[in-house]
Amino acid sequence: MKAEYLNPFLKGISSILEEVVGERPALGRPFLRPGYPYSVDGVAIFIGVTGHLSGQVVICIQDACARGIAAAMLMEGSIAKLDEYAQSALAELVNMIVASATIGLAEAGYRTDITPPSVVTGEKIEISNQAKIPTLAIPLTILDGKIEVNLSLVEAGAAGK
C-alpha cells in the first residue's frame, strides 16, 4: 500500500468526521492485517472501489460509537438502536469519506469509481476477500469509541491474479 493511496483516506476521514460529528478523530497507527478473515463487532460498512484502484473499503464502528455518530448526524439526542435512519446516516458518512478520498486519489493520478455502500451489523462479523488483497487498517478514536478503516486496494490488473 503506497502512501499516495493512504493519505487521501486519512484526509477524508478526519475532515468528514470532524464536519459531521463535530469532533476531530484521534488517528492511530495504521497496520497491515495478517490476513483473512478478520472479524469485527458492531457495524461494518462496505464500499467497493473500481478504476485505477480496485478492491474495497470497509469501515467498522463499535455499536455505541455508531449510535453516537448517527445521533449527531440525525441531530437527535441519542439513538437506542441502529434503525433504518441510523443505518442510512452511517452509509452516507462512509460514502462521503470515500468520495472525498477519491478526489485526492484522482489528484495522485488514480481515477476511481465507488459503489453504493452496504451496511452489515452484528457481533463477530467475519470479513474475507476472494482476491486476497492485503488490508491496511487505520484505527481511530472518536466519541470515546473505536473505528477501524480497512483499505483493501490494489492497482487495477493486479487483483484476483
Partner: peptide
C-alpha cells in the same frame, strides 16, 4: 436523493 438519511435531514 437515494439516501434516506439525506432526504430526512434535508427536509428537516
Amino acid at each position: 436523493d437515494d439516501s434516506l438519511f439525506f432526504r430526512h435531514m434535508f427536509s428537516k
